[in-house]
Design a protein around this nucleic acid. Sequence first.
DNA 1: CTCTGGATTAGCT
DNA 2: GCTAATCCAGAGC
Length: 198
Amino acid sequence: MIVSGERVFYSEPVINKKLTRAFYTRPTLQVAKDLLGKFIVRQTPQGKIVGQINEVEAYLGEKDPASHAFRGQTPRNAPMFLSGGHAYVYFIYGMHHCMNIVTEQTGRAGAVLIRSIIPIEGLDLIRKNRHQVKDNQLTNGPGKICQALAIDRQQSGLDLVTSQELWLENRGAQISKIQKTPRIGIRTATDKLWRFTY
DNA sequence: CTCTGGATTAGCT
DNA sequence: GCTAATCCAGAGC
């Protein structure tokens, strides 16, 4: 980038662009697909961690039997009803956390579960948080991601558009060959192909 | 208040 | 492939 007075010229495409509200407040299935290849950035007191999203699942809200919002709003799922761009983190199986990106407009409870990311920055910190697991097992699961990025219910409800500790970036990656399969670990709506990988 | 089972993981057979 | 680990949200009474 070349800066000349008040004018700015870009010598290459703009990258490292933080995702805005407009990205998140769209239909859940569209946001889910578009999240593939984006980068999740976690700033902790111990350092910065970055990973590239390569597997997600869409949960469509009050009309989706597999969604936590299927039976309406509760204290736990309240962040799902906020505007797109918030985080929804829940605790499961007595030991794991899972992170969702809330979608759609305020009052519509869509969300996208982040199931796998590729470690990009902060590998030493990731390894420390995950302790003694093989490098190819560091962040290939929703519970593993939260452990690696030090995310728990304290981050649930966080606004990813304004937060200084957790946000997403578009670094210009172009994704092709998106695969659609049934969602993992659910008992209902297994006919819906709302898991996206590439 | 009590009960059930879960958007998972690691370790073992 | 099988399952223990371990908490708590949500439902039902």
